[in-house]
Design a protein around this nucleic acid. Structure first.
Lengths: 243, 243
DNA sequence: CGTAGGTTTGACTGATCTCAAGTTTGGTGG
DNA sequence: CCACCAAACTTGAGATCAGTCAAACCTACG
């Protein structure tokens, strides 16, 4: 039995309504979007760099990340995604994927034809605004990541990533930020922060020793949010109260 | 006497027409946009983080960059801009600026009220598409910068930044990529690549010793483009043939 | 109970930073 | 035309954060 949260229309409408004021006609337009729900395994590639995707993914359950790699094979994760996030909105207007999208753990996604999404974005200006706004916030997050990876030290980078994750989770209505599932490995944290997994391990230990947070398998428990925020140099303004 | 390149309408229309097919009505809509041309000195802040800007800037002459800083004061440049670039498109939909915009050298900009731009974006779907597409390409460039700063070594980062600059210049019709003015200091290159100016200096020397390129004051001369591209691990796909 | 993926540890290396002192450059005012 | 100044650039020596490599240890799961 599907919970409310697994209903693609509910999820998508809730997301877009947070980004722009929507009326009943917008609601109907969203409700009329065709989609297909699929369950995919851990590490499944939803999009590969160079693809010409014809669908946008709405993440219903599970997590995903976007990443790119150098030709030497070093991987850099550029964003994390959680239930309610709309991936690949850009494929409404950009033909070719410039990065990979991969699930982290098993995930359930709704596939929405990009052409259909493009049509409602063209016909309903409030939906246009919501989708465009979503991609602008996306870009703001990337800017913050450039700063994070370019100018913060290892501990701060990791702390910052965790703060962002916690705050976005809450904004998406996925529960409180002090204690949550974050199923990525230390290797994936390393790929997101431009570090190695060995060093991530040591930094997480140092954060634990100081009583800031704990991480066991996928569970994060933040003991001292203020201290974490300070270490992270985290200011949520760049999330533009959404994302 | 203003050259063609200094005519805001020409510049803006040329830019947008590269992003989406525009017709005569679109042309008229662009021509009808109000604007004010101003000349500003080097280092002038066009936008400050936290501002609520009511204008978008079209860069007519000179260069600019967007940057953020940690609370410790370390600065990270997140993008460079050149004549023809439309800055702050995001302020059509996001109230508060999440980063600074600052000129590099003296610059001439056309200030276009965000509200007016928003109106034409709402009324003319081709212009909407062009502007949205522009912000999506922006985001793609940020993703590449996360990779650049997160996973490439110092030489590659600098080389990559130079490749991007050269290719975007050409795409914007500003001349050939083998030899061009790039008026930023080594300090600014450092801020864009997440390095220190001392190390940038040494890396530029090593690139010069190898006969890859030379840089004197603001002039860049690329002697061996293929080698530079290889060092940079540069693949222009992420620019989506525009930017 | 064997295996694979994930985590942890230790010893060593090295790329990049820091600090601090010069040097060059271009512009400015006398 | 020169003297001076600030900004940019250059150089050297030493410090350090993070990487590398390699081994061992968990732990979930088939």
């Amino acid at each position: 039995m599907a919970s409310n949260d697994d209903d693609p229309f509910q999820r998508l409408f809730a997301k877009l309504a947070r980004l722009a004021p929507l009326d009943d006609d917008d609601r109907r337009a969203v409700a009329g979007l065709p989609f297909k729900v699929v369950t995919v395994g851990s590490g499944h590639y939803l999009v590969r760099e160079g693809d010409k995707p014809e669908v946008c993914c709405l993440l219903l359950r599970g997590y995903a990340c976007r990443h790119k790699a150098t030709s030497a094979g070093d991987r850099q994760i550029v964003s994390f995604h959680m239930p309610g996030d709309l991936l690949d909105v850009q494929h409404i207007l950009l033909t070719q994927a410039d990065h990979n999208v991969q699930t982290i753990g098993e995930a359930v996604v709704a596939l929405i034809p990009a052409a259909a999404l493009k049509r409602v974005a063209r016909e309903r200006s409030a939906l246009n605004e919501a989708l465009w706004r979503d991609s602008l916030i996306d870009a703001s997050i990337f800017r913050e990541w450039v700063l994070n990876v370019g100018r913060r030290d290892a501990r701060s980078r990791i702390a910052h990533m965790l703060c962002e994750f916690a705050v976005r989770r809450r904004a998406a209505g996925l529960g409180e930020p002090e204690r949550f599932e974050m199923p990525m490995t230390q290797n994936e944290i390393a790929d997101a922060t431009g570090l190695t997994s060995v060093h991530v391990n040591r930094m997480l230990q140092s954060l634990k020793e100081e009583g800031v947070l704990e991480r066991n398998r996928g569970l994060i428990v933040i003991h001292d949010w203020n201290r974490l925020r300070d270490i992270a140099d985290f200011d949520p303004e760049y999330l533009h109260a959404a994302a």
